[in-house]
Design a protein around this nucleic acid. Structure first.
Lengths: 343, 343
DNA sequence: TTGTAAGCGTTATCAT
DNA sequence: ATGATAACGCTTACAA
C-alpha cells in the first residue's frame, strides 16, 4: 500500500495535467503547451494530436500554474464605482463582449465610490498580474496612481477625457455635457435653473461646473439653486430633493438632474404634487436610462454612450497589450441630447 | 554584465517575494508564510518581525503561486443570471460583505439566463480551484451538474428551495410567492386575474404555477390571461404587455407581474392611457425594487429578501468550507407582501 | 515552534 | 520544429 507522499500528484485534484496530455499525444509537455496555445511553430499534425488528447482527457489549463510560469494571468481588471447604476453594468457588458472572445477573463471590482476601496482593490487585483486595467475616471489616491504606474500594466480610463492628455482614455467631456444641458434649458426660455446632484463623484461635479459656467455666461446663475448631496442617487432621493427645492424656490422653472434616477423620482413626485412638467418646471435627466423614455411625461435626458465606451476602451487595452502604437490616446465618444416631453 | 538567465528572479516583475520578506525578518520562508497566514504555531515575536518586514517591503502574496502550491485559490465564485436586475446586484453586495473580511475574493459570473453560458463559466472558473460556489437556482445542464459534483467544491444554491432537499440552498418558495400574490388579489375581490412574466427562468415559471393553482382552486383560472414571453424584462416591455392585455381582455381586474420593472411600466402606461389603478385594474409586482414605492400609484409588491439570501448563502458556504456540519441545509428566508396603493 | 526538502503545473530559455 | 532543463513563488509533508 503506497503512502500518499510517494505518489506523484498526490495533492492534486485529479484533474488531468499538461503532462498527461503530452504523453497521450506522444510529445513533450512543452510541445503540448505550444500546441494548445496555438503557437504556430508546432506542426499541424502534432497540434491536432495534442488537441485531441486534451479533449479526450477533458484537459483544462491550470490558470495558477500558467500565471506563475509566465508571470501573467489571462485576466483584465475593471474597476467601477457602482453596480447599482445600470450605466456601469452596460459598460461591463460591452467590455465582456470584447474580452471573452479573446480568451481573457474580466475581473470586476466595485469600489462603491470610495477612493480607499479602489486602492485596496487595485493592490489586490494587481497581485493577480492582470494583462490590462480598465478604470473609471481620473479621481484616485496618489498611492493608487503610483501602483498603476509601477505595475506597468496597460491601463485605459473610462467615462471622462483626460484634461492632461497624458493617459489613454475613452469617454466624453462631462463639462460639455453640463453645458449642453444648460443651453438646452436656456433655449427653452427657462431662466431660473437648478442643478441637482447626488453621489458627488468628480464627473457629477464636472457636469455641475459645466452647467454653472453656462448659466453664468447667460447671467442667470443663482448659487442657491445648486443642490448637491453625497447621498447615493436613487428615485426616492430625487423626489425628496425635488420637493425640497420647490418649497425653497417656488419660482424655479427648470432642473437639470445629475442622474436619471433622480429625475425620474422628481417626475413621479411632480405627478403626486400636481406640478405640471414641463409647463411649470422643465426636467432634464442625465444618462438616459432605459426606463426614462417611458416616464410620464417622457423624460428628456442626455444619453451617454456607455456601451460604446466599454467596447472602445476594451479594444484600446487590447491594442496596448498587443504593444501596438496607439495614435488616438484620447477618444471622445460624445453624448446625445434626447429631447422628449419633460423639457 | 550578467546575462538575464544567470540571475535569480530574472522573469519576475520585481515584486518582493516571500523569500525576501523571510530574509529581512531573519527567518525561513516557511515561517514567514505561516506568520503571514496567521498560523498560530509561530511565536508572536517572530510573527511581528515578519509582518513588519512584509509591510516595509510592500509585500503582497502572489495568488498564482499560492494557488498552485496549495491547490486552492482564495476565490469564491458566484454565478448570477443577470446584472441588469438590481436584485442580483444586491445579493452580490451582501455576499461581498461576508467574504471580503474573510480574505476571500468574489468572482462574479453573469450567465445571461443561458444554461450553456453558465456551463462555460463553471468550467472556466472551476479551473481556478475556488473554495466555494454560489449558484442561482437549480436549473442547469446535466454537464454543469456533473462538473460541480466532480469538483467537490462546496456549493450553495440561492433564490429557490430545493424540492429534493438534497442540496444546500438559501431562498424562499417561489411557488408560495405566486400563491400569495393570487390570494391577495382574490381577497381584494378581483376575479379576472392575469399573470405577466418575461425572461422565463424557472423561478418565474414557478411563480406563475403557484399563481395559477390558487386561481384554479378559486375557480377563476383563465388560461388566456397568462402572458409569458422570453423577452428580457424591462419597464418598456411592461407597458407594452399591459396595453396588449387590456386590449384583448378589457374585463381584466387584476394583474400580477413577475417582476417589478414590468409592473412599473404598466403603471406608467396606465397613467398615459387614463386607466385607473387600482380602481379598474389592480397591479401587483414582484421583488419590490427600491423605486417601486415611489411609483404613481405606489406599487404593491412582494418583497424578496435578496440581501438576506446573499448573506446567509455566503455564511453557509463558509461553514461548508470550514468543514462544519450544517444542520439546516435548506434555509427558507421567506418573502413579504407589501400592500401599497396599486392593489 | 521552526526548518528542510520537494513539488504544485506550467512556460521561458536555450540547445538541437 | 521539438525538447531538456530550470525556474515561477509558494505551501505541504515531514523531521528536528
Amino acid at each position: 500500500m503506497p503512502t500518499a507522499h510517494h505518489e506523484k500528484n498526490a495533492r492534486t485534484t485529479g484533474r488531468p495535467t499538461l503532462n498527461e496530455v503530452a504523453k497521450r499525444a506522444g510529445v513533450s509537455p512543452i510541445t503540448a503547451s505550444r500546441a494548445l496555445r496555438g503557437i504556430s511553430t508546432v506542426a499541424e499534425e502534432l497540434a491536432q494530436k495534442v488537441r485531441d488528447a486534451a479533449r479526450e482527457l477533458g484537459y483544462v489549463v491550470n490558470p495558477a500554474a500558467r500565471a506563475l510560469a509566465s508571470a501573467q494571468s489571462q485576466a483584465v481588471v475593471v474597476l467601477v464605482p457602482s453596480l447599482a447604476n445600470q450605466l456601469f453594468v452596460e459598460t461591463l457588458e460591452a467590455i465582456h463582449n470584447v474580452m471573452r472572445p479573446k480568451g481573457l477573463e474580466v475581473l470586476i471590482g466595485n469600489f462603491h465610490y470610495s477612493r480607499d476601496e479602489e486602492e485596496n482593490l487595485l493592490r489586490n487585483y494587481l497581485a493577480y498580474q492582470p494583462r490590462g486595467l480598465l478604470l473609471t475616471g481620473f479621481e484616485r489616491t496618489e498611492s493608487a496612481r503610483r501602483m498603476i504606474e509601477a505595475s506597468g500594466v496597460p491601463c485605459v480610463y473610462m467615462m471622462d477625457l483626460d484634461p492632461g492628455a497624458g493617459l489613454h482614455c475613452v469617454g466624453f467631456s462631462q463639462l460639455d455635457a453640463g453645458a449642453t444641458a444648460a443651453r438646452h434649458l436656456l433655449e427653452r426660455g427657462r431662466k431660473r435653473l437648478a442643478f441637482v446632484g447626488a453621489q458627488l463623484d468628480q464627473r457629477t461635479l464636472l457636469r455641475a461646473e459645466g452647467f454653472r459656467r453656462e448659466l453664468q455666461r447667460a447671467g442667470v446663475y443663482e448659487p442657491s439653486l445648486e443642490l448637491l448631496t453625497p447621498r447615493p442617487s436613487s428615485v426616492g432621493l430625487g423626489g425628496e430633493l425635488f420637493t425640497q427645492l420647490l418649497v425653497s424656490h417656488p419660482q424655479l422653472d427648470g432642473i437639470f438632474f445629475g442622474n436619471d434616477d433622480l429625475a425620474q423620482g422628481a417626475l413621479l413626485e411632480a405627478l403626486r404634487l400636481g406640478i405640471k412638467v414641463p409647463e411649470q418646471v422643465a426636467v432634464l435627466g442625465f444618462n438616459d436610462l432605459p426606463s426614462s423614455a417611458f416616464m410620464v411625461p417622457r423624460l428628456s435626458s442626455i444619453r451617454t454612450p456607455r456601451q460604446a465606451i466599454g467596447q472602445r476602451a476594451a479594444e484600446l487595452v487590447l491594442s496596448l497589450i498587443a504593444g501596438e502604437t496607439v495614435t488616438q490616446p484620447v477618444q471622445d465618444m460624445g453624448f446625445e441630447l434626447m429631447v422628449r416631453e419633460s423639457s
